[in-house]
Amino acid sequence: MNRTDLIKQGLFLKGLPIYETDIQHIQNIHFTINQAQTPLNAFPNLNKTVPITVVDKRLMLWQN
């Protein structure tokens, strides 16, 4: 999702503002993230890993 038109469309659909000056910076950030995703290929079993989540311990306390 790094094409200018797709970024603008994505923001528009979410009711978010579109500033022309922001777009290149959003593209740069997405480019960095996309590049940084490459090393994940070295971990083929990643999908077997349970994700860390934002856990509120009180949820578990209430269950007990």
Binding site: L11, T21, D22, L46, T49, P51
Partner: peptide, 29 residues
Amino acid sequence: MDNRPFLLSGTLTNTPQYVKAQQSRRKLV
């Protein structure tokens, strides 16, 4: 003007990407 694009880029993060990040994170731990 620096934080707005930083935050807006996050609104375009999809849930699978976020979850994948948290899976990577457990691997790191």
